[in-house]
């Protein structure tokens, strides 16, 4: 029994340790973003904001680049999500029908894309050949379909009772009618799951933008953030005067903390609402079908 207490203690300690390790940096960044540059640089911030100020946030909301990035990301996410959901459902429904001739062939066509891909350059050449460089399409089209999402949707469609289909047939409703009038109205949960998976993916990724966009009025938020948070690191050494350096570093650090908060808050605000859909999606996906 004594080892059992120890074991239980270990599990609890493990759990709390990680909860704190994960939560603390998030709280720290949040507090630092509201503190004065001086407090940040001199290391006075530990847990709560010191000498609270909104300076950094004012700077961010007056920065045209960040605002353009926000707007672009909203457009890409909305448009890309709609395209993803439509393509996924259109592919998943026929694949879920038992009497669909060619089901095996089309399924393998899809599975093969999970195993093997043409790679960066061949894909780039196709996008370029289609004239999509520096357009919205380069962001919303190339990653619109994920085999994983299709399988989740197909599993869901298969789980609908077959009697529905028989009833449609008796009522003389065609396959199209069955899909649009019977199946789709029943599919809100799966549409939500796929839309959320795609939306979070589109909002958070920067790879397609890095490769296909060079026009900075088209940059999504993540590229703007990269310029500020990661590439912005370099210019500090150019300042000679130490005091000026400290102030400059302080302000730029403060800005970075605030940018991190502004960029994460929209997703983290929705996260408690969408978490259960994510969990549900993962569950459906893990059932083999």
């Amino acid at each position: 029994m004594k080892t059992d207490v120890l074991f239980q203690g270990f599990l609890q300690a493990f759990m709390w340790f990680w909860a704190i390790v994960i939560l603390y940096p998030l709280i720290y960044v949040f507090s630092a973003s509201f503190s004065s540059p001086h407090a940040v640089v001199s290391g006075q911030v530990w847990l709560w904001p010191v000498e609270p100020t909104f300076k950094a946030y004012e700077a961010i909301f007056n920065n045209p680049q960040i605002m353009i990035g926000f707007r672009n990301s909203l457009i890409y996410t909305a448009l890309g999500t709609v395209i993803s959901v439509v393509l996924t459902l259109l592919l998943a429904f026929p694949l879920s029908r038992p009497r669909f001739v060619g089901r095996g062939f089309f399924t393998w066509m899809l599975v093969f894309t999970m195993l093997f891909s043409g790679g960066l350059i061949p894909t780039y050449m196709v996008i370029k050949g289609l004239g999509m460089l520096n357009t919205w399409w380069a962001i919303v089209l190339p990653s619109a379909l994920s085999a994983w999402n299709v399988f989740i949707a197909r599993t869901y469609f298969k789980s609908l009772p077959e009697e529905l289909y028989e009833a449609s047939t008796i009522d003389g409703i065609s396959d199209l009618g069955h899909f649009f009038r019977i199946v789709l109205p029943l599919s809100t949960p799966i549409v939500a799951v796929i839309a959320l998976f795609s939306a979070v993916g589109l909002w958070n990724s920067y790879f397609n933008a890095l490769i296909y966009l060079s026009n900075d009025t088209l940059f999504p938020l993540q590229i703007v953030l990269r310029n500020i948070l990661i590439l912005g690191n370099i210019d500090i050494s150019m300042v000679q005067n130490f005091d000026a350096m400290v102030r400059k570093q302080g302000l730029s650090d403060l800005l970075k903390y605030a940018v991190i908060v502004v960029a994460s808050v929209p997703v983290l605000l929705f996260y408690p609402l969408i978490q259960r859909y994510f969990v549900r999606g993962m569950m459906i996906g893990s059932i083999k079908g």
Partner: peptide, 17 residues
Amino acid sequence: APYFISTVVLVGLMFQV
């Protein structure tokens, strides 16, 4: 929660922390 933070923000956070 951290799963929903974008890669750019994560690495930016790492640089700061």
